[in-house]
Design a protein around this nucleic acid. Structure first.
Lengths: 353, 353
DNA sequence: CTGTTAGCGCATTCAA
DNA sequence: TTGAATGCGCTAACAG
């Protein structure tokens, strides 16, 4: 590989001049610029980004830590971020945290070691305090999908509580009274928030929340299966179930179908996330949209604005979920309102926002 | 951030010694080693990987280019590779090629510029010649999901032809005669191979391949929808359709259902890839497994063996697909064999391998 | 506008 | 076993 030195020799200029045509061409006369460019071409010169980083102490590179590198949610995160950053001419380095505190720490260190200019972090295990302590010591960072009091300006988050509310509120509106809930792991704040949205909707409708009708799941399909089985074994006249994510909803739907019941005639199902394949389910899943792509792009923009000083970006810190009405939820058989879910809720469900 | 220089001062040794305890501790006496380690701890020292790369001309880092960073196939690639490499203590840098030749080239240059030790490439637009020409000029590379004559040792590929054969062969075995085929973009070799497997199975059964029953799709759900619509408009007594990937199968299934037909009673559907959500479809999709995870891990192992010289790794270059029988395919209504697809084909379909 | 010079943080000779 | 010296390829003052 040709180096900047060889280029300078061939072009008959100094090494600094070559560097200038790459970083600030305005400081070089057109003529020498052409000579240098020609020499670069001829030698098929590519700058060594490693050396650039070392010398400039910037890497034009932002580090991204996500829990996993695959799956509909994380996949969307990763590719949305990359897209936005690439468009701005920045590079991206990804690493996985696997929802484990030690791994997450190591990931952050890895990224810091690679001299990233900024960090976009989707962590699940590390606590808010970890970041509060490091707010000034660590390189610039945004927390994606987290709301940390005191760090509001570093957080891009979703109003999960509202999402939970929207789902249950819609079911109540179309006449359901016996609504079960399959939650995510309740030690996680998003799972907690979605559940309390559900509870708020119930309270508002003066329906008592019953512990029996809540099963804690794990955000996985298998967890949805187990949870739904437990729910059916209860023998209660459940007419609807809201699942804290689509993955578990897929599991729940299968159990419901296998039990001889039909969806939504016997039991309505509502999911959360609106992952890509949720509309491939049968019936198509009614769910609450988690706008991962926009939020991820916003995290990238945060970096563009705060680190690379791009002026014309408007930041939004908190995002709102949105109910997507499809076919898996409808009025209960004995319900008063004959209107299908799609119509009945289109207007009302948004009221909470 | 503390540097190696500060550590050496605090430990009262030379800079070279500190470097040694990191890279080859056996060359340093236990005593000084302890001193250095203590100093590192005290200063919370982390080596600057950028500087390490520049000085050593290795980065312990492998570059990965995939078409997209999201989706069930690429997501699996990305995370399997990262997992395998991380386990071996190597780092991974990802970038996306977006099935575009120019972008793919830029991606490769980016990775090369970051001084990766090796490249794992899933390219779709760049031709075999590109790599043949660069075999010795480029840093070590493996092509994932491609078979390039002359570069066999650099390719990890799937026998796509066999997969296409398996799907159609199974349908023939259970009594189908009118089998439609929705292919991928036929300029791509994997799409071509899957199709010719289908054709081979037909030929073997002495059934003439009819152009009418072939529709070229685009590997997307929407393409599956369009293709299936065209197929139904033909008005032919089709009893089965094989789709060149699960994505299109999802689209096809929806069209079939909307037309008032049922699956598999009226039309059997077979997919290809066995993506995670294919079993969430209703009925669960019978499909051909593309073992992405294993193949991706194998690509990582290729690098471990050929670049990092890990001895005990056995390489496999060509992988075989496998038919996964679920519920979307069964004997046709007027078929002779009453046995369900699961049973009838469990033994026979594998014959081709 | 251009060239000279001095590092960036580390690995790696070569001597000692 | 250790230390001193050199350079990886480039950027960034500082002069000119």
């Amino acid at each position: 590989m040709a180096t900047i030195y060889e280029v300078s020799k061939l072009a008959g200029v100094s090494l600094a001049t070559v560097s200038r045509v790459m970083n600030d061409p305005s400081k070089v006369s057109e003529k020498t610029q052409k000579k240098v460019l020609a020499a670069m071409q001829q030698l098929d010169y590519r700058p060594n980004t490693i050396a650039q980083s070392l010398a400039s102490n910037r890497s034009n590179c932002v580090g991204v830590l996500v829990s996993e590198l695959h799956g509909p949610i994380f996949g969307t995160m990763v590719s949305s971020i990359e897209e936005e950053l690439t468009r701005a001419g920045k590079f991206t380095i990804f690493t996985a945290g696997h929802s484990d505190a030690a791994t997450e720490r190591k990931g952050i260190e890895f990224l810091a070691g690679r001299k990233c200019d900024a960090l976009i972090l989707h962590v699940e295990a590390l606590h808010n305090e970890f970041f509060a302590e490091r707010q000034n010591r660590l390189l610039p960072f945004v927390l994606l999908n987290r709301f940390a009091p005191g760090l509001e300006e570093n957080c891009i988050s979703l109003n999960n509580e509202l999402g939970g509310y929207q789902a249950t509120r819609m079911l109540l509106d179309i006449g359901h009274h016996q609504i079960a809930y399959i939650s995510g792991p309740l030690e996680w704040s998003d799972a907690k928030a979605r559940l309390s949205g559900h509870q708020r909707a119930l309270a508002e409708a003066r329906i008592e929340f019953e512990d029996d009708l809540l099963v804690e799941g794990d955000y996985h399909e298998s967890g949805g299966v187990r949870a739904m089985q437990r729910l059916l074994e209860l023998g209660r006249p459940i007419t609807a179930v809201v699942c804290a994510n689509d993955e578990m909803a897929a599991g729940a739907m299968e159990v419901i179908r296998n039990s001889g019941r039909s969806i939504p005639e016997d039991i309505s199902v509502v999911g959360f996330d609106n992952v890509r394949w949720s509309k491939f389910l049968y019936p198509k899943l009614t769910t609450v949209e988690y706008p991962v792509a926009e939020m991820s792009r916003m995290a990238a923009k945060w970096v563009l604005k705060n680190v690379y000083r791009e002026p014309q970006v408007d930041l939004q810190y908190v995002f709102h979920p949105r109910l997507i009405c499809r076919a898996s939820a409808a009025a209960p058989a004995q319900g008063q309102k004959p209107a299908p879910a799609q119509v009945a809720t289109g207007k009302k469900a948004g009221a909470g926002s």
